[in-house]
Design a protein around this nucleic acid. Sequence first.
DNA 1: CAAATACTTTACTTTTTCGTATACATTCTG
DNA 2: CAGAATGTATACGAAAAAGTAAAGTATTTG
Lengths: 172, 172
Amino acid sequence: MKVSALEEYGLRCMLRLGRVSEGESLTIHEIAEQEGLSVANVRKLMMILREGGLVQSVRGRLGGYALSEPASTITLGRIMESLAGRMYDPEFCGKHSGDVTICVNSGACSVRSLWGVLDGLVGGVLHRIRLSDLIGDEGKVSFSLRKHLEATIDQLLGQPAPRPHSLPVING
Amino acid sequence: MKVSALEEYGLRCMLRLGRVSEGESLTIHEIAEQEGLSVANVRKLMMILREGGLVQSVRGRLGGYALSEPASTITLGRIMESLAGRMYDPEFCGKHSGDVTICVNSGACSVRSLWGVLDGLVGGVLHRIRLSDLIGDEGKVSFSLRKHLEATIDQLLGQPAPRPHSLPVING
DNA sequence: CAAATACTTTACTTTTTCGTATACATTCTG
DNA sequence: CAGAATGTATACGAAAAAGTAAAGTATTTG
C-alpha cells in the first residue's frame, strides 16, 4: 500500500501538461527536464498515460503531448488507475492463496472486506479530485482537497447501510 | 498504492493468532497449514511481526507464537506499518527526484500534499480499527468498519482549516 | 526529396520484493 | 543426557518493478 514510482511521476507529468495553455503541448524532453527525470523514463510514462486515453500525442517536427481533455474533467482516480490499477485486485484471493484453490477464508473473509472499504475510501476521494484542483499553490490545494473529502464522506456515509446513529457533523 | 503480499498475509497471520484463546499459541506449521502458505514464508512473516513487537514467541518443544497484547488493543495501523511502512514516505521527494538534489516541485508541491491527505485518511481509518474488530463474520465486520470510518471522518473534518504554511519547506 | 525533430515500439539491465532453503539455537520429553 | 520439535538467522534464487537503450515510424521544414 505504498505510492509507486509510476504513480508519483505519472501524476507529475499530468500536472505539467495541465499547467500549459489549452492548445499548447510539451515534448518528452521538456517534461523530463522540468521534472528532473530521464528522457527514457518519461517516454515510458507517457506511453502508459496515452494507452489510458489521458493524453494525446502528435508526431513529427512540432509534435508533443497534451491532455486529451481539459484538466477540469480529468479525475485523479482515472489517472491512478491507468498508472497502477486498483488498490486491491478482487482476484487477489484466488491468485495468492497458496496451494489451495479457493480462498481459505472464503467463509468469512474479514481481510477482503477491509481492503474493500479502504479501496472504496481512497477511490472515492481520488475520483472526486480533478486534475485542475491540484494546479495552484499548496494552500489552495489543501482547501480544495478538503472540500472533496467532505463530498466523498458524505456519499459513503449517506448510503442506506446499517448505521447505529445519525450522520456525523460534516462542518465541524 | 497496491496491497502487498506482506500486508495481506501478515494480517491474516495476526487474525489466526487473534482467534485462539488467551494463553494459547500457534506454531509456524499450524499457521502455514491454516492459511495455505509455505512454512518458510510464514517463518519470515512472523519474524517481521515479532520485530514489530506485535507477537511473542516461545522456543523449544512446546513453543509457538501468540499476540503480545490482547487483540482489542492492537490496531491495524500498527500491523500495517510493521509490515510495509507508511503509504507515503516523506523522504520520497529527496530520494526519487531524479538527478536534481532538491525537489523540483519545492515551491508548490501539490502532489506531496495529496499523498499526505490520502496517507492521513487511510492511516486514520487503520489506527481506529482493532484486530478484534476483524474477528467474526463478514457482516459484523462491515458494520464495525463503518463505525470506525465515521469516527475517523469526524476527526478529520473536525480539525481547523489547513494553514497555508502548514508543511515544512522541503528539500527538502 | 532529404534532413532534423519527435513520438513509437521493443528489448535489455538494474534494483527491489517475494519466496525458499539451509544451518543454527533453544526447550521439552523421556 | 539424547533426541525431537520449535523458533532464529542468514543467504540464495525467482519474480516483479523500475529504469535504460536502441532501432523504427511519422511529420515538418528547407
